[in-house]
Amino acid sequence: MREGNFIDYVKLHVTSGKGGRGSAHLHREKYIDKGGPDGGDGGRGGHVIIRGDKNLWTLFEFNFKRHIRAGHGENGGKQRSTGRDGEDKYINVPLGTVIRDTDTQEVIAEIIEEGQEYIIAKGGLGGRGNWHFKTSTNQTPRYAQPGIEGEEKDITLELKVLADVGLVGFPNAGKSTLLSVITAAKPKIANYEFTTLKPNLGIVKYRDFRTFVMADIPGIIEGAAEGKGLGYRFLRHIERNSTLLFLIPCDAEDVKKQYDILVDELRRYNPELLDKDRIVAISKTDMLDEELKKEMDAELKHQFSDVPYLFISAVAHQGIQELKDALWEVLNKEVE
């Protein structure tokens, strides 16, 4: 998925370095005619290493560079001199990046911590010099090992946004508006579906200078779990959120039915998502008078008996602090 500089899916071809050749040098100097073998080992080829960087938020860098190659090891020298190792090539990626084998789609590694490193392609070993092969019956071996070739792999990088709270809802439910009010993020906002085509992250400032991260996940549609619309691209970002905030507009034809559809899409995509904490926010309630709000509240008490819900209006700034309190309490509850 890409919009502007946000890219969360790229395919790369990586090649590690070849090991250096071992030396077959024979020691020669004045007054020493037959000094024997003294060829050094070749240097190791460079690794291709993936490393987590908390300052990155997109895979945009790889939009124009799809082939990554590490340096080759240098050949061994005389006097048992070992060749220099090839230069390692680092691929810095945002936290939350999943590395897959492009051919098999098998997950190779997941980068979720700052500075976490994973060698995706190991450099080839350097060949051994001829002094290793000296024996009582072969005092002057004139051969050495060649360096081992490096590895070549096709890999896929997938970014899953790391956030404490993920906003879940149908298109045009008011997620971007809420994010713009509750954080300093400035997502694109308009009154039509799929305004948001990329996740937006924002820092929510809470009491006593405490903060947590909220992500506006692009709207889910019915059938997203089967890939309808941009389903897979949207849903994978929810996997990294510890708490899910379901945003449902008060003018929805059936609030509970809309919630059930969203939950079912998550279940079909990945049943483990249902283990996450959930809160339901009924949005756009500035359109309701007190009497209508009381009627809706009485009805929702029976429908959402097992999930906490509250009324908010991002435009009118109603219920925003209560929402922050509820989210903070869930995020920091003690695990029994």
Rank of each mutant, 00 (worst) to 15 (best):
F212D: 02
I279A: 09
L327E: 06
R207F: 11
I91Y: 08
E110K: 14
G17N: 09
G83S: 10
G219R: 09
M287W: 01
F62C: 06
D8G: 10
P199D: 12
K153D: 11
I120Y: 03
K122M: 07
V93P: 05
E149T: 09
C250I: 09
I282H: 01
T156H: 01
K301F: 04
L292Y: 08
L157T: 02
S242Q: 13
L323G: 08
D101T: 03
G174M: 08
D306W: 02
R128Q: 12
D101E: 14
W131E: 02
K276T: 05
Q105C: 06
Q145Y: 04
R51M: 10
E61A: 12
R233E: 15
A185F: 03
R236L: 10
L245K: 10
D8H: 10
S136K: 15
G229A: 09
R240V: 01
H237I: 08
R267V: 00
H132I: 13
V165C: 12
I220Q: 00
Q258V: 00
V280Y: 07
R28G: 01
K198C: 00
G231F: 01
K153I: 09
I68L: 14
I217Y: 05
I155D: 00
F133A: 11
R51I: 11
H317C: 03
K65T: 15
G147E: 02
W57T: 13
P171L: 05
K228V: 12
D264M: 10
I155L: 06
P146M: 03
G83W: 08
A185K: 05
G219E: 05
W328M: 06
I312K: 06
A70C: 09
H47K: 15
